[in-house]
Amino acid sequence: MASQGTKRSYEQMETDGERQNATEIRASVGKMIGGIGRFYIQMCTELKLSDYEGRLIQNSLTIERMVLSAFDERRNKYLEEHPSAGKDPKKTGGPIYRRVNGKWMRELILYDKEEIRRIWRQANNGDDATAGLTHMMIWHSNLNDATYQRTRALVRTGMDPRMCSLMQGSTLPRRSGAAGAAVKGVGTMVMELVRMIKRGINDRNFWRGENGRKTRIAYERMCNILKGKFQTAAQKAMMDQVRESRNPGNAEFEDLTFLARSALILRGSVAHKSCLPACVYGPAVASGYDFEREGYSLVGIDPFRLLQNSQVYSLIRPNENPAHKSQLVWMACHSAAFEDLRVLSFIKGTKVLPRGKLSTRGVQIASNENMETMESSTLELRSRYWAIRTRSGGNTNQQRASAGQISIQPTFSVQRNLPFDRTTIMAAFNGNTEGRTSDMRTEIIRMMESARPEDVSFQGRGVFELSDEKAASPIVPSFDMSNEGSYFFGDNAEEYDN
Rank of each mutant, 00 (worst) to 15 (best):
D112L: 05
F479R: 11
K351R: 13
K351Q: 03
D128M: 02
Y289C: 13
Q399I: 10
M191C: 02
A323C: 13
T437S: 13
L341F: 03
I217H: 02
A22D: 08
Q327S: 13
E18H: 02
R152A: 03
K470T: 07
C223T: 06
W386P: 00
S407W: 02
N395I: 14
V329H: 00
W330G: 04
M66P: 04
M481S: 05
G490K: 08
N247P: 00
C333A: 14
V242W: 08
C279Q: 03
V280D: 01
M196Y: 06
R213N: 10
S383C: 12
N321H: 03
N395C: 06
G200S: 14
N483Q: 10
G435Q: 03
V280K: 03
R118S: 12
K103V: 04
L307G: 06
G132T: 07
M239L: 05
D112A: 15
A2I: 00
A403S: 15
S367R: 06
P173Q: 15
A403P: 06
L315C: 03
Q42I: 05
A323R: 12
E292W: 05
P453L: 13
A218N: 05
E53V: 12
Y97L: 13
T134L: 06
P161C: 07
L276F: 13
E434I: 06
S310Q: 14
E64I: 04
S367E: 09
G282H: 08
E484S: 01
Q399E: 05
I301F: 12
V363W: 03
R152V: 01
A182L: 11
N247A: 11
I201P: 00
R162L: 11
A237C: 02
Q231M: 06
V270G: 04
R174W: 11
G356V: 07
R117T: 14
L259N: 03
K229H: 08
I217K: 10
S473I: 14
S69R: 03
Q364E: 12
Y148C: 13
S310M: 14
G394W: 06
M374S: 03
V463G: 13
M163W: 01
D340W: 05
S345N: 10
N202V: 03
G288S: 14
T147N: 14
I109F: 12
Q4H: 09
G185E: 11
P95Y: 01
Q311S: 12
E372W: 08
N370A: 03
Q409K: 10
S486E: 07
S310G: 14
S287L: 07
L466E: 06
F291T: 06
G362Y: 08
L418G: 08
G431W: 10
H140F: 13
G490R: 10
W386F: 09
Y385Q: 14
F338P: 01
N417S: 06
A179M: 06
I33L: 11
K470H: 03
T45R: 01
V194F: 09
F338N: 09
R361L: 05
H135R: 03
E495H: 06
A146D: 02
M137E: 02
G37R: 12
R384G: 09
P173G: 06
T6M: 08
G212L: 09
R422H: 02
L79A: 06
S176Q: 03
R121A: 13
P83R: 11
P83N: 09
D145N: 11
E339C: 06
E449H: 05
G295H: 07
R208C: 02
F230I: 11
S478G: 00
R246P: 09
Q20W: 04
E192R: 01
R98Y: 03
G349C: 09
T188E: 05
E494T: 07
A218W: 06
S482E: 07
R117Q: 13
G394F: 05
A336K: 02
A181S: 15
S376H: 12
Q405V: 00
G102K: 10
F71M: 06
G394H: 08
Y487C: 12
T215E: 01
D255Y: 12
I406H: 02
Q149E: 12
N321L: 13
Y40N: 10
R461P: 06
E495M: 14
A181G: 10
R99Q: 08
F230V: 12
S467V: 04
N224A: 03
I119H: 04
G158V: 08
G158C: 11
V242T: 15
I408H: 00
E484W: 13
R152F: 04
A233T: 15
S287C: 11
I96A: 08
S176D: 03
E192I: 05
I116E: 03
A22Q: 06
A401M: 11
L276Q: 14
H82V: 05
G34Q: 05
P419K: 00
K357C: 00
N430M: 00
K87M: 12
E24V: 03
A428G: 11
T257F: 14
G37C: 13
V280E: 07
I96N: 07
T92H: 04
P318W: 15
R216W: 08
C275L: 05
F489C: 10
